[in-house]
Write a protein that binds this DNA or RNA. Structure first.
Length: 863
RNA sequence: GGGAGGUUAGCUCAGAGGAAGAGCACUUGCCUUACAAGCAAGGGGUCACAGGUUCAAGUCCUGUACCUCCCACCA
């Protein structure tokens, strides 16, 4: 053909150019008035914090594979991209940067800090876009969104106001998870529990009116400064008599009551629990029930405040040391035990969480959760793999109200305005005056919303909700969500709830939850381990196609993905293989050719195999088995097309009439490229354009299974041919007979005549198709009904070769015995399916014949 | 304390009732005019363990051990 491919495949030389070409042609932007069926995915918006990691590469590759597949399948496809402002995560990164300059956000003030955040965002948003484009992601960039955009912010406000007016959003004093470093409240999900080797301190609280006292056990002695009672279980015989009496709280010397509460575990510690309602979740509940006072002893940084009396100004950990020291002095520290327990840590900065009593905004979850349960139970939303459904349902069934306020600056500011008269105004517009008292002295709530609040609206807010937009009509609900299982609760479940609440529809019909990318040994990638693989780096090394192919090939159901350079190298080699196969085909073809079907076996075989591949790939797609569909094509391309058909085509290309073989080569290549395009878009487009069939493969039809091209018969005969060829090669090798030595082959079997010339061409043998048995010196062997004899002179036979045959006989004898035993078993004959029995009988025959052949071989060549 | 997933070749993983599979690694030959990032031929497995169901069990059931991960207010 006119355009030639370079002699070796070089990734990196054409990708950027092709991506620009796709953008210029607007292939990724769907038509809004299309008659085609819609297929839509919204991207899990990456955080604007920084670089994409391998997990992003995976989730976006998988999405792109599906998106490109559906596009080729004739759907009107939308893949909507965007980024997330990622409240705490992003703010933390910027704060860290500031710290390098010795500054804090408080030095800058809210306004200046947000300006810096804005600049930061601009920089990284493009970064992320560029990296997604580097991977070939076919997102519709004309629809790119960011969670803090005007439109999305409007949606957030709309949702907040509506929920507030329905009394689903409320403000309350509650014990929340507090990060003293981030100085904000966190939701339960943002707390990671880690096992910590701690101590259990036994402290004596003396009775007020008796000798002795109660010994309480605690892991956090410093919180005793905020104690307002000691609780015992009402059933506890040890303490029954003391209930209602008082003890003296050590150090602060306050009188606190002894109360009875069922929440106290008799078995744990001493069975007596110090109650600190402001700093422990259980104590909080107990405190509420018994109307105990709340002593908040820490400030927002975790430093002891004036409630702590002499301990004021100590950080919580210093405070602990000091308290213990003083208790020891007073002889009240009875015992210290080692104690293994789980302690909450901030998901983002790993600081130890402080349960903290404070006023926060909450979203009532129970009713919304019920709806979200229904749609999964009914199957309207399908989770893949399905075992996630149980996890999802259990979480929703035990849901707690969601703390949605964060004491941060980077995010959607809570649209609640406080008037000096005590009125709270929550409306779509910022109020100028208080509707109640007319005051102009209004102050907006300082807090922002949890990042996941805006994420929860993402599938529809990105399409213009609450306006009734065309996009919503055409593309919502979305078809599929692909995301990591780690955000099943954070994001997936909340989207379902919010979507049902606000649109009355599910946000998506299917959710594919991918595994985690790990290193070759299955270890989590981490900087400290030094095993991090960066998408950018490997795209440069192996090309984005090879990276995508690797990720896809390794993605089976729910499993983690063990990524390694070796794997990527292997699949990079596949790219090279494909490249060179294409080079071979194109170098033999002058112009695009329509398929001319040839009836000869090899052509029938490859066309038939292609159809099977198409079918299997289709099945792989319908099951979201990326590994299956990827390996299916890999195998077809390498082990069928390259290893056999291309080699065979060299024979046909030497003959006179070559049109049909050329057309078949062209046809197969064309289909291979189409099959592969969703996985490896760049290289397939590059080759496609050289084939001069059409402008772009991106919008070509995906191959459809064509029953007319199936030919089981040809496949079977070809299989025998393959075995024969392999055997001849094996004989040559073990006999040390080079390919330059022409051998004589006597053979009989079904349709072998048709392949005679091809066998001669491939293996340098003289083939005689014969029905008669010829007793001559030679190696006899068979496969199914093909029986053959390769004439080899006695001198060539080595001890080694004869031993191989002997071993082979031994193996066959074992098998023979096994089958015979089975066939003699009355129960087997009675109960097994006829089909199974006949297979066994056939196999026995085959084995027996082979044994006979090998014995003859031994006899002929025997000593 | 609940729950989920896993244990198959040296490594990483497919296979889910009827002769143990792939990629990489390994051995041995080959620069055979698409490709040495390649070609060809090989070696390699009590399918974690113990019971059970079945004519037949990596495959189904029960239990055990070990690994991974979620969830939970154990001071």
């Amino acid at each position: 053909m006119k355009k030639e491919l370079k002699t070796s495949f070089e990734a990196g030389s054409f990708e950027n150019f092709l991506y620009k070409f796709w953008l210029d042609e607007r292939y990724f932007t769907p038509e809004i008035n299309s008659k085609k069926k819609s297929f839509s995915i919204v991207i899990p918006p990456p955080n604007v914090t920084g670089k994409l990691h391998m997990g992003h590469a995976l989730v976006n590759t998988l999405q792109d594979i599906i998106i490109r597949y559906k596009r080729m399948k004739g759907f009107n496809v939308l893949w909507l991209p965007g980024t997330d402002h990622a409240g705490i995560a992003t703010q933390m990164v910027v704060e860290r940067e500031l710290k390098k300059e010795g500054k804090t956000k408080y030095d800058l003030g809210r306004e200046n800090f947000l300006k810096i955040m804005g600049d930061w965002k601009e920089k990284y948003k493009d970064n992320i876009k560029n990296q997604l484009q580097m991977l070939g992601c076919s997102c519709d960039w004309t629809r790119e969104r960011f969670t803090l955009d005007e439109g999305l912010s409007y949606a957030v406000r709309y949702a907040f106001v509506k929920l507030y007016k329905e009394n689903l959003i409320y403000q309350d004093f509650y014990i929340v998870n507090w990060c003293p470093r981030c100085r904000t409240a966190l939701s339960d999900l943002e707390v990671v529990h880690k096992e910590v080797k701690g101590k259990l301190y036994h402290i004596l609280y003396p009775f007020k009116e008796r000798e002795g006292g109660l010994v309480v056990a605690t892991t956090r002695p410093e919180t005793m400064l905020g104690d307002s009672a000691v609780a015992v279980n009402p059933k506890d015989e040890r303490y029954k008599n003391f209930i209602g009496e008082k003890v003296i709280l050590p150090l602060l010397k306050k009188e606190i009551p002894i109360i009875a509460d069922e929440n106290v575990d008799l078995e744990f510690g001493t069975g007596a629990l110090k109650v600190t309602p402001a700093h422990d979740p259980v104590d909080f509940i107990i405190g509420k029930k018994h109307n105990l006072p709340y002593y908040l002893i820490f400030d927002e940084k975790g430093v002891i405040n004036k409630e702590g009396g002499p301990y004021e100004g100590f950080d919580r950990f210093e405070g602990r040391r000091k308290v213990l020291e003083d208790l020891k002095k007073e002889g009240l520290l009875i015992k210290i035990e080692d104690h293994l327990h789980k302690v909450g840590h901030c998901q983002r900065c790993e600081t130890m969480i402080e349960p903290y009593f404070s006023k926060q905004w909450f979203l009532k979850m129970e009713d919304m959760a019920k709806e979200a349960i229904k749609v999964v139970k009914s199957g309207e939303i399908k989770l893949i793999p399905s075992f996630w459904e149980k996890t999802y349902l259990e979480w929703l069934e035990n849901i707690h109200d969601w703390c949605i306020s964060r004491q941060l600056w980077w995010g959607h500011r809570i649209p609640a305005f406080y008037c000096t008269c005590g009125n709270i105004i929550v409306e779509m517009e910022d109020p100028k005056i208080c509707p109640k008292c007319g005051s102009e002295n209004l102050k907006q709530d300082e807090d922002v919303l949890d990042t996941w609040f805006s994420s929860a609206l993402w599938p529809f807010s990105t399409m213009g909700w609450p306006e009734e937009t065309e996009d919503l009509k055409v593309f919502f609900p979305t078809s599929l969500l692909i995301t990591g299982f780690d955000i099943l609760f954070f994001w997936v479940a909340r989207m379902v709830m919010m979507s049902l609440k606000f649109t009355g529809k599910v946000p998506f019909y299917e959710v594919y939850l991918n595994g985690l990318v790990r290193d070759a040994e299955g270890e989590k990638m981490s900087k400290t381990r030094g095993n991090v693989i960066e998408p950018e780096e490997v795209c440069k090394l192996y090309g984005p196609d090879a990276v995508r192919f690797t990720l896809s090939a390794l993605t089976s159901y729910g499993r983690d993905i063990p990524l390694s350079h070796e794997r990527m190298e292997g699949y990079r080699n596949f790219m090279n293989k494909l490249w060179n196969a294409s080079r071979f085909v194109l170098s033999n073809i002058e112009e695009p050719l329509p398929l001319q079907v040839d009836k000869e076996i090899p052509h029938q075989y490859i066309l038939s195999k292609l159809q099977k591949t198409i079918k299997n790939v289709e099945d792989g797609f319908s099951l979201y088995r990326f590994d299956i569909l990827t390996n299916e094509i890999y195998h077809f391309v390498w082990n069928e097309f390259c290893d056999w058909y291309i080699e065979i085509s060299k024979y046909y290309l030497k003959k006179e009439k070559t049109e049909s073989v050329k057309s078949i080569l062209f046809f197969i290549l064309k289909n291979i490229l189409k099959l592969l395009h969703p996985i490896i878009p760049f290289i397939t487009e590059e080759i496609w354009q050289k084939m001069e069939i059409s402008k772009s493969i991106t919008i070509e039809d995906y191959p459809e299974f064509d029953e007319n091209l199936l030919n089981e018969g040809a496949e079977k005969v070809f299989e025998k041919f393959k075995v024969l060829i392999s055997k001849i090669r094996a004989y040559r090798k073990s006999l040390n007979l080079g390919k330059n030595v022409r051998l004589n082959l006597f053979i009989k079997g079904e349709r072998v005549e048709e392949l005679k010339n091809l066998i001669e061409f491939m293996e340098n043998v003289e083939v005689e198709v014969t029905e008669k048995e010829k007793i001559i010196e030679g190696i006899k062997d068979k496969y199914e009904d093909w029986e053959w004899l390769l004439k080899v002179q006695k001198d060539f036979l080595s001890e080694n070769f004869l031993n191989t045959i002997k071993k082979e006989i031994e193996k066959l004898l074992c098998e023979k015995e096994r089958i015979e035993k089975r066939l003699k078993d009355e129960n087997f004959i009675k109960k097994a399916k006829n089909e199974v029995i006949s297979i066994q009988k056939e196999r026995l025959k085959e084995v027996e014949e082979k044994i006979a052949f090998f014995n003859e071989n031994l006899k002929v060549y025997g000593e």
